[in-house]
Design a protein around this nucleic acid. Structure first.
Length: 494
RNA sequence: GUCCCCAUCGUCUAGUCAGGUCCAGGACACCGGCCUUUCACGCCGGCAACACCGGUUCAAAUCCGGUUGGGGACGCCA
């Protein structure tokens, strides 16, 4: 059987955004599923808008997501000779012609057509130029573009789409499109086909916004006498106003980079993205890589555009709530040592990493992560809400400070007393610390919650957290006693 | 304006090709309950959709036609 070869061809005119990442992901899944190859090709023929920064951003984004490619990155500009050769072939075979219409003429005609609400498209002025006319104009040094000569046929051009089924378009609706600029540089429509032929691409999986390109490109394949690949047009990702998402109008929240910076688990983003416009036909929503590769098929890609459910300005749901939920799921269920590696990077960035977490304190490190991960949303929370577990310098959240500490001024003496009892305990265990805490509350005739919640605030700076006595044991007697004794600072500061 | 594509809860979607098992299932979000020293997690329950009109049929979310709505394309961008 023929080897499956797919490609991801981003144009380096902006960072990798989630729409592009999803296209890359689908291609990657398809390649993996069929033991095929994924080719990464940077389509940089738009010299004015292509930037190195953007190329780096795309490669970084792919790597972070774990979407590895088998060939490339190739750069389209390196194959300019191929593109020109193809254009000349088309010219020679009569499938293309030189067009001397000026930009101004075309622009005027276009506007007139739009104003008159007529069909917009090239009228074919230069299509029937005689050989002499062409030579005369060339001798005059008039600039020209090369246009593809769409065959004059009755009926429709049809191709079978793996997602949408049979797609048809009347030949008469396809205008003679430009394949080479007047400066001699070939355009996307041609370059893309020439590259796909050279790279032996078998399946073209791309967005539905390419559908009109596809009909024209099918003609190009035909004229170049090349085998037409299988096409699969994926639905688009829209915003809540049903507008195509773009970095320009939606900002950071659609950039892959944003999710790395916000502490997302790369695979959680992949899992979310694959569910946008695809489903396995079962209720299963969480997949390992292997499971997803196994389950993935083009035929289960949805025909319907999907909405990225992001409302600007919501502090709780700073991106699609389902994406956050999926990230939380992985955060609390993923393999602990894998989580440990991800959190390590966060701790290192904040200067909180201790090498002993990899050696003699590894067990403590992983157990602590396991204890606190249940209420976290992203990896960032380990160094913010979870900071007190890794550092003695942590902020006290004003809300619990007021509610659990300042409201009970007696805690200034009670908690140091409790610290003494902890210090005197023969065995520093969950049971014993809980016992003396409750005992003391009883003596003071206050609810245990007063001591417990006050303690949580002082020890972790947080309103909420794991079971108090688990925290106490995790932090260890020394830190607990020291922190409880420091409580007067909180009253002094207030 | 022309051409192409699409249409199930607020969002992601199952079900449509092979009509009945669907007064429509799951997930997220939201609401309520249980658990509990806090907050979560977890578990249980609730709210919530077949765009509209007509046709075919004993029977339509499902097939057909139309209407409406949404999206895409119409560059010497990719």
């Amino acid at each position: 059987m023929e080897e499956v070869r797919v490609r991801f061809p981003p144009s380096p005119t902006g960072y990798l955004h989630i729409g592009g990442a999803r296209t890359a992901l689908f291609n990657w899944l398809f390649a993996k599923k069929h033991n095929g190859k994924l080719i990464l090709r940077i389509e940089d023929t738009d010299e004015e808008r292509s930037t190195q920064e953007s190329i780096d951003g795309i490669l970084d984004g792919m790597q972070w997501l774990g979407l590895d490619w088998d060939e490339g990155p190739y750069f389209q500009t390196e194959f300019a000779a191929d593109h020109i050769e193809a254009a000349n072939t088309l010219l020679a075979s009569g499938n293309a012609y030189k067009c001397f219409c000026t930009k101004e003429d075309l622009e005027n005609k276009r506007e007139a057509a739009l104003a008159a609400k007529r069909e917009v498209g090239y009228d074919g002025t230069c299509r029937h130029l005689s050989a002499e006319d062409v030579r005369t104009k060339e001798d005059l040094g008039l600039p020209f573009v090369i246009r593809f000569k769409v065959p004059t046929r009755q009926g429709t051009l049809a191709y079978s789409d793996e997602v949408l089924g049979c797609i048809e378009r009347a030949y008469s609706d396809i205008e003679d499109f430009v394949i080479v600029r007047s400066n001699g540089k070939p355009l996307y429509l041609l370059c893309n086909v020439v590259d796909d032929i050279r790279d032996r691409i078998t399946h073209v999986i791309r967005g539905q916004d390419h559908m009109t390109n596809t009909t024209r490109q099918v003609l190009l394949y035909e004229a170049l006498q090349a085998k037409i690949p299988v096409f699969a047009h994926m639905p688009l990702t829209l915003d809540l106003q049903k507008r195509k998402i773009s970095k320009r109008s939606h900002g950071e929240v659609v950039a892959v980079q944003y999710y790395r910076d916000k502490g997302f688990i790369p695979w959680a983003l992949c899992n979310f993205l694959c569910l946008l416009g695809w489903n396995p036909g079962t209720d299963k929503e969480f997949f390992t890589r292997e499971e997803l590769i196994e389950a993935f098929t083009l035929s289960r890609i949805s025909k319907v555009n999907s909405v990225f459910n992001y409302k600007p300005g919501d502090p709780k749901f700073f991106t699609d709530p389902k994406l956050i939920a999926i990230n939380e799921h992985y955060l609390r269920t993923m393999d602990l040592s894998q989580l440990g590696a991800l959190v390590r990077k966060e701790l290192e960035q904040e200067g909180l990493w201790d090498p002993s977490f990899e050696t003699n304190r590894r067990e403590w490190y992983l157990a602590t992560l396991n204890m606190i991960r249940d209420r976290f949303h992203t990896l960032k929370d380990f160094t913010t809400a979870g900071r007190a577990y890794f550092s003695d310098e942590y902020a006290i959240d004003p809300k619990p400070l007021a509610k659990n500490v300042l409201k009970f001024p007696d805690l200034a003496t009670w908690l140091p007393q409790l610290a003494q009892r902890f210090a005197a305990l023969p065995e520093f265990t969950v049971e014993e610390t809980e016992r003396v805490s409750r005992e003391m509350a009883d003596e003071l005739q206050v609810k245990p919650g007063v001591l417990i919640n006050g303690m949580r605030t002082v020890l972790t700076g947080q309103l909420a957290g794991p079971s108090m006595f688990d925290i106490v044991i995790t932090l260890g007697r020394e830190k607990v006693v020291a922190r409880l004794n420091r409580i007067d600072h909180l009253f002094a500061a207030a």
